[in-house]
Simulated scan of single mutants.
Amino acid sequence: MTIRPSRRSAATGAHLLAEDDAGHSVVYRTAERGAAAAEPGSEVSFEVDHIDEHQSTGWSVLIVGIAEHVADPGEVRRFEEQPGSRPWAGGVRSLWIRIVPGQVSGRLIRGL
């Protein structure tokens, strides 16, 4: 994930959830003062990749959009109840951020 506060960029890892019913967005949780804590209204990018070395295949998807903080307790509870929502990293990760996509691009790689 890349966050662009002001004129600088920072790349960091984040644990994501796809949000189907709320408009094809991506949500993730982070620490309130963590490196991935994008400011509301800021432009962010999020990249997801997968490589299968045995099949010589892979794919990559890049989303560029606007960050929103999720403050509604019902939405937060719904995200926390989803499988895979528990962060792997230690520490408190109480801030949920939604990325509303403006651009989506991708690439599929197939070996010979």
Score class of each variant (00 low, 15 high):
31 A>S: 15
92 V>C: 03
72 D>Q: 07
37 A>R: 03
44 V>P: 01
60 S>P: 09
8 R>N: 14
37 A>I: 11
26 V>G: 00
41 G>W: 04
54 H>K: 10
41 G>F: 06
24 H>S: 03
92 V>D: 15
78 R>A: 13
78 R>V: 08
75 E>A: 12
40 P>C: 11
30 T>R: 03
19 E>C: 06
19 E>I: 10
23 G>D: 02
87 P>R: 14
47 E>A: 05
81 E>I: 05
46 F>R: 00
69 H>Q: 11
82 Q>S: 03
78 R>P: 10
50 H>C: 09
67 A>D: 05
39 E>T: 15
67 A>F: 06
33 R>W: 09
69 H>P: 10
78 R>E: 09
37 A>Y: 00
45 S>Q: 09
76 V>E: 12
78 R>T: 13
19 E>L: 08
40 P>T: 12
36 A>P: 06
20 D>S: 04
79 F>Y: 15
18 A>N: 02
19 E>A: 11
79 F>R: 15
11 A>Q: 12
28 Y>D: 02
69 H>R: 10
36 A>M: 04
15 H>T: 11
82 Q>V: 12
18 A>T: 07
48 V>C: 06
90 G>C: 08
7 R>H: 10
25 S>C: 06
87 P>Y: 13
88 W>G: 12
13 G>P: 04
83 P>I: 14
77 R>N: 05
11 A>L: 15
